[in-house]
Design a binder for these strands. Structure first.
Length: 642
RNA sequence: GCCGAUGUAGCUCAGGGGUAGAGCACUUCCAUGGUAAGGAAGGGGUCAAGGGUUCAAAUCCCUUCAUUGGCUCCA
């Protein structure tokens, strides 16, 4: 007998050689039906592999991320099986599970696949799935494996095999399809009940543009047809909320071919929204002891040589602008920090001045490859809600905590309640990528880890994702549709103060090096507003709305009254507009609804006589008539709701 | 940057070798209407830009620009 300990802490005894699936069955038949894979002593594996020793066991179903991954990876194999059945001479690259589904990179030879053939492939996959073929795992020698794929003529798998060690190679087979794969897989194809192939893309073999381009087929699959339907509805909803579409419809921003790609132009309504957002943070920062500054949009090339940015990014930046007479070289600023370092360094600093928190909504320009540009989330000109905190080393953690608190405050105020922090550390195996000593790196990394632990923040740690000058913490925000976005960032930097030779005179009357924190709670205004737009589907928090209400007179007889109400509301700091077009009330309501104006105030004979407004809420309908004072308190109540 | 797709009126899109179409929006007129589109008339396009083929190009070909789905990248 062996002891199996389960996640709930219980320990059960089983015969040696029992599988995770058997154990599930002993708990309940229903569970057994839903088990997709299992984690045995920390290793994720097939649910039907025999367990021979005492082990800790976790069963994965569709409700676990790892269960979904297994399911989708197995679906990729099913796709491959279908392709092999439908087309001749298909060669296979790799076919992993991804965040939402799976893909398989395939070489179809002369054939070009079109998405019109998707229904045919989906039908074949479902047909094969209904066979309930088991995913059979086989350990195989390298020699045999090579012989197999030589015979099949699949050079991609042969290349993958070259990198594998003998004794460590497994095949999986379901139906007639055999694939090199380390697994794990679901027990059989029968649980794949709904499949949708999503798109087609070219992808270079091994991500190398000098190598052959394969056809990548993206798909998603589910254990229930209903779940596929729900997923497709979610995608529709995401399309409706696309900030590029809403930005155009709500006239927030535009792009112009003549101005240039990746250069957003803020229209009046977008500017109103953005300005409110900026002022909100500016006010909050003043309360928290930040000092606003303004710096130029360009700086001499030497500035960026001093900071190290030129050496690191010079080639991939907008190239320097030169002055016609003197031949000086200037760069569009890609960062605000070098300018801020100059501000720190412009006079001798005492420890009594620290921490010094220099803030600027600084517009920066970064060359992004043309293929990377995307709406407001990936642009070539954007404004960071930037600040640099200069402090003594023993103030670092407290400052870091202060920034964590500010960022959390800001995100919550904007309705992002669901976020985690990603701590990005240096790749210990590739230290050449970074500048600065080991000692400084360790100090910085520890400060971040300790601060997040202190506030009990949920974190994920990624090695090799740090900036070249220091470790960082990025806020990963989940929006209303459950999609993850990276927004704000906090970065510890010991390097720039050194490169700029920044000092302060300590209580000991000696010069010391300050530590620097870069931080931007929104990240960039562009990206943040893009994400916020999608998060709230264009229905921004009331306090941010460019137009909080539309005043809709029943007929032009009441335009004067409407304007009178507008003036009264303006005095109460409530903003909106009068729709005085010669249109029927139904029409005015519809237009306001479509434009997502949060409050409609309808005024006609009755309201004018009683000095009232008939209130209607966007998306909800008639709320009833009220006097101006009553409306003011109703409005305040709505403001508090976010 | 690379591979694929796309670019026709302010917007959404149809058309397609023989001098441009719809709906919405816009303008004017009629209607003064009570909670999601009142009616009529009218204006508006070098069919992304440049080049080529052709008697003739918005349509076919090439180049460029832009958008877009991916790949690679992101201080």
């Amino acid at each position: 007998m062996i002891n199996i300990s389960l996640p709930d802490g219980s320990v059960r005894q089983y015969e040696k050689g029992v599988s995770a699936l058997d154990i599930a069955k002993s708990i309940s038949e229903g569970l057994a039906r839903n088990v997709l894979s299992a984690k045995v002593n920390g290793t994720i594996q097939d649910a039907n592999i025999p367990i021979n020793n005492d082990a800790s066991l976790q069963l994965f179903t569709w409700n676990d991320v790892d269960g979904k991954k297994t399911f989708w990876h197995s679906s990729a194999h099913l796709l491959a099986e279908a392709l092999e059945a439908l087309y001749d001479n298909v060669k296979f690259g790799i076919g992993p599970a991804i965040e939402n589904g799976f893909y398989y990179d395939v070489d179809l030879g002369e054939k070009t696949l079109s998405s019109e053939e998707f229904p045919k492939i989906e039908a074949k996959m479902l047909e094969l799935a209904r066979n309930k073929n088991e995913y059979i795992r086989k350990e195989i020698s390298k020699e045999e494996a090579i012989a197999f794929f030589k015979e099949k003529g699949d050079e991609y798998k042969l290349e993958l095999l070259e990198e594998l060690e003998d004794g460590n190679i497994t095949f999986y087979q379901q139906g007639d399809f055999v694939d090199l794969c380390k697994g794990p897989h679901i027990p059989n194809t029968g649980s794949i009940k709904a499949i949708k192939l999503m798109s087609l893309a070219g992808a270079y073999w091994r991500g190398d543009e000098n190598r052959k381009q394969l056809t990548r087929i993206y798909g998603v699959s589910f254990p229930k047809a209903k779940e596929l339907k729900e997923y497709l509805v979610l995608l529709e909803e995401a399309k409706k909320r696309d900030h590029r579409k809403l930005g155009q419809e709500l006239e927030l921003f535009m792009f112009s071919e003549r101005v240039g790609s990746g250069l957003p132009i803020w229209l009046p309504k977008g500017t109103a929204l953005r300005t409110r957002l900026e002022n909100f943070l500016k006010d909050e920062q003043v309360k928290r002891g930040y000092t606003p500054v303004i710096t130029p949009h360009i700086g001499k090339k030497e500035l960026y040589e001093t900071s190290g940015h030129w050496q690191k990014y010079g080639e991939d930046s907008f190239q320097p602008i030169n002055t016609p007479k003197e031949g000086e070289l200037f760069l569009l600023k890609p960062m605000n920090c070098p300018h801020h370092c100059e501000i720190y360094g412009h006079k001798p600093r005492s420890y009594k001045e620290l921490p010094l928190r220099i803030a600027e909504f600084g517009t920066v320009y970064r060359y992004e490859q043309s293929g990377e540009l995307h709406g407001l989330t990936r642009v070539r000109c954007f404004t960071q809600d930037d600040a640099h905190l200069f402090c003594m080393p023993d103030q670092l953690k407290e400052e870091f905590l202060g920034v964590l608190d500010l960022t959390t405050f800001v995100l919550k105020k904007l309705g992002f309640d669901n976020f985690t922090a990603q701590i990005s550390l240096r790749d210990p195996g590739n230290k050449d990528k970074y500048i600065g000593s080991d000692e400084l790196w360790e100090k910085a990394e520890n400060a971040i880890i300790e601060a997040t632990q202190e506030v009990g923040m949920e974190t994920v740690t990624e090695l090799g994702e740090a900036a070249f000058y220091g470790p960082k913490l990025d806020f990963m925000v989940k929006d209303a549709l459950g999609r993850s976005w990276q927004l704000g960032t906090i970065q510890v930097d010991y390097t720039l103060p050194e490169r700029f030779n920044l000092e302060y005179i300590g209580a000991d009357n000696q010069a010391h090096r300050p530590v620097m924190i870069h931080r931007a709670p929104f990240g960039s205004m562009e990206r943040f507003i893009g994400v916020l737009t999608e998060h709230c589907g264009g229905k921004f928090p009331l306090w941010l709305q460019p137009e909080q209400y539309a005043l809709l007179p029943i007929s032009d007889k009441f335009n004067d009254y409407a304007n009178d109400v507008k003036n009264q509301l303006a005095a109460l700091d409530i903003r909106g507009f009068v729709d005085d077009r010669n249109e029927k009330i139904g029409r005015k309501i519809r237009d306001a609804e479509v434009n997502k104006v949060p409050i409609m105030l309808i005024v006609g004979e009755k309201e004018a006589a009683e000095g009232k407004v008939a209130v209607r809420k966007q998306g909800e309908g008639d709320v009833g008539a009220m006097g101006i004072d009553e409306f003011k308190s109703y409005f305040n109540q709505l403001l508090d709701e976010i």
